[in-house]
């Protein structure tokens, strides 16, 4: 267990989470005794091989899927339904094709019963911040993958969430687009006036996790269980192609390969 974990009171506690799926009447364990904490102002990544249950874990943290055993504690309270202080960015963008950019972004606010005018104002502000200005009336089919994911990000940020969850946000993007978008995420993250306090990202890309995060949790093959966690103490801005970063990447990769 890292030093940070012991000293600071966590915002979110993942306690002993277990999950099984039913596959043709056979029980398949997906997650086994997963425990860790998440602290204020932390960018945390969860890495692991595909099929290790990391996306399921993210859905359990959000409160979308209940664990079979164990619990998620948010600021001292047990989460039993979707946590309204969180929002999620999906790998597949999950945009509604018949809505334009601003309407897709506003969707994040509609459920909250905020008046139309106010919704639009907030949507426009966040659209500017994520670099979608000029594309307000574009439809998803008119957008590149990178721009689609910006819409996904704007929709998640428009509710001003305390915790932003990202499920493989860059993995369906062209490598160049992913490269640029990671930088944008870091820029948003470093601007404390707009960013959520906590980001939890699930990825299979170890290099990406080390580059972006303050801490990396490593899950094992299925059933996913915490193998190790690493504090990433490299100074920001980081050099993605630097020696120190590569050493950490190698160390983590050797754990899961």
């Amino acid at each position: 267990m890292s030093i940070k974990t012991q000293l600071v009171t966590p915002i979110l506690d993942v306690r002993n989470v277990n999950k099984e799926f039913n596959l043709h009447g056979r029980k398949v364990p997906i997650l086994k005794d997963v425990s860790f904490s998440i602290h204020e102002n932390e960018f945390l990544s969860i890495v692991g091989p595909s099929g290790c249950g990391k996306s399921t874990l993210l859905r359990i943290i959000l409160g979308l899927v209940p664990p079979d055993k164990g619990e998620i504690i948010y600021k001292g309270e047990r989460i039993q339904s979707v946590n309204p202080h969180m929002s999620m960015v999906f790998q597949s963008f999950a945009l509604l094709p018949w809505l334009n950019v601003i309407e897709n972004v506003e969707l994040g606010l509609e459920a909250q019963g905020i008046p139309k005018e106010q919704r639009q104002r907030r949507a426009l502000k966040i659209i500017q911040e994520v670099g979608l200005e000029g594309f307000e009336d574009a439809y998803p089919r008119e957008l590149s993958g990178g721009m689609k994911q910006r819409v996904g990000l704007a929709r998640a940020l428009v509710t001003d969430p305390e915790i932003l969850l990202m499920d493989e946000p860059f993995s369906s993007l062209d490598p160049l687009i992913a490269e640029g978008l990671r930088e944008e995420i870091l820029k948003l993250w470093s601007d404390k006036s707009t960013s959520p306090e906590i980001v939890i990202m699930v990825t299979h890309n170890v290099e990406e996790a080390v580059y972006l995060s303050d801490r990396v949790i490593v899950l094992s093959h299925r059933p996913g269980t915490v193998l190790s966690e690493f504090d990433i103490d490299l100074q920001r801005p980081r050099n993605k192609r630097g020696q120190e970063l590569y050493e950490l990447v190698d160390k983590i990769t050797s754990l899961i390969a």
């Binding site: 590149s144 990178g146 721009m147 687009i177 640029g180 978008l181 192609r241």
Partner: peptide, 28 residues
């Protein structure tokens, strides 16, 4: 796409602003 242009420039900056084309292609 604009996002690809940004990606290339950011990557190039990581390489110290100058790099062999084959090397950056391989890296990306």
């Amino acid at each position: 796409h604009y996002s690809r242009l940004i990606g290339l420039l950011e990557a190039l900056e990581d390489f110290g602003g100058k790099v062999d084309v084959a090397k950056i292609a391989d890296d990306l």
